[in-house]
């Protein structure tokens, strides 16, 4: 008796709670269909994109050799030039983020439901920022090079353009999420609409905007390291050149420089975020 109490008849339990043990029939079919569809598309992609074990194998062997050649990392003879290019990269990210935030600020109000009553304006602003966001920073860099020529200035403009789209979307979402009572309070004491926005809405969204800006500054430093590949300034130019000429030890050095810089900016921006925004709990 004792053993049967400790180890109850499992088959009986399974039979009694079949639905709990194996899930509903429909759910299982759906899961199976989703997994099969995903695997099918993956297989199609593997065939179409010409994956092969031979190619992967030889590539991995090649990569191994490159990795071996990467140690020890060295700056070669151009340490000074690399540092200057790195400073350029950070400057590009900084100015690009700042300009984008300034331009996107009014756009955010135009795209938010509670500050812009006109549906057409809202729709147009949103589609405008969507199309800007759909184009990668590198493409914008190529386009701006046509306008201001090769160099870091084109990079600043490229980062700025692609971030305007992202910022105006984030800003409009932040504005729509605010507590509207503050604005109503301002209006009820005789403030105009501009007053309501300035004293009722801006103080609520400012911390969100600033923390987004700092966050994007870090991620833009990463983007700014690559726009040099198409000639828009920064360290990317050196990186692409060193890869093309197989100077693997210098490639490793440049990548390490980028990693250190991004980590430093991450540290500074999270400190700044805490100092400006403070530990915030709750909705915003």
């Amino acid at each position: 008796m004792k053993t049967s109490r400790m180890f109850p008849d499992q088959t009986a339990i399974r039979a009694r709670h079949a639905a709990l043990v194996s899930g509903s029939q429909r759910e299982r079919w759906v899961t199976l269909a989703v997994v099969l569809a995903m695997a099918g598309v993956a297989l199609l992609a593997i065939v179409r994109l010409e994956f092969s074990f031979a190619r992967l194998g030889s590539g991995i062997v090649q990569l191994g050799t490159f990795l071996g050649l990467m140690v020890p990392p060295t700056p070669g003879t151009q340490l000074w030039a690399l540092l200057k290019a790195l400073a350029e990269t950070v400057a590009i990210a900084f100015l690009g983020t700042l300009l984008a935030a300034l331009i996107a600020f009014p756009l955010g109000f135009l795209a938010a439901r509670n500050t812009m009553a006109n549906r057409l304006v809202r729709f147009l602003t949103r589609r405008f920022s969507d199309s800007i966001r759909g184009v990668d920073t590198l493409i914008w860099a190529l386009i701006w090079i046509n306008v201001v020529g090769l160099g870091p200035f084109a990079g600043v403009l490229a980062i700025m353009t692609s971030d305007i789209g992202a910022f105006s979307k984030l800003y409009s979402e932040a504005i729509e999420a605010i507590d509207r009572r503050a604005g109503e309070g301002v209006t009820s004491t005789g403030g105009s609409r501009v007053h309501a926005i300035r004293f009722g809405i801006v103080p609520q969204v400012m911390p969100v905007l600033i923390s987004q800006m700092l966050y994007y500054f870090e991620s833009n430093t990463r983007s700014a390291t690559i726009i040099g590949i198409v000639g828009a300034g920064g360290i990317g130019l050196y990186l692409a050149e060193m890869i093309r000429t197989y100077e693997w030890d210098q490639v490793a050095f440049i990548i390490l420089m980028i990693l250190v810089t991004v980590a430093a900016i991450d540290f500074v921006s999270s400190r700044l975020r805490l100092a400006i925004v403070g530990e915030r709990t709750g909705r915003l």
């Binding site: 190619r55 090649q62 990569l63 983007s223 692409a240």
Partner: peptide, 23 residues
């Protein structure tokens, strides 16, 4: 942290031109 384009640049050398290094 290393941008994907940088990986792509290196992989293009190792795996040859085409979509494989991109993936």
């Amino acid at each position: 942290t290393v941008p994907e384009i940088v990986f792509a640049l290196i992989f293009v050398v190792a795996f040859g031109l085409g979509p494989v290094p991109g993936v």
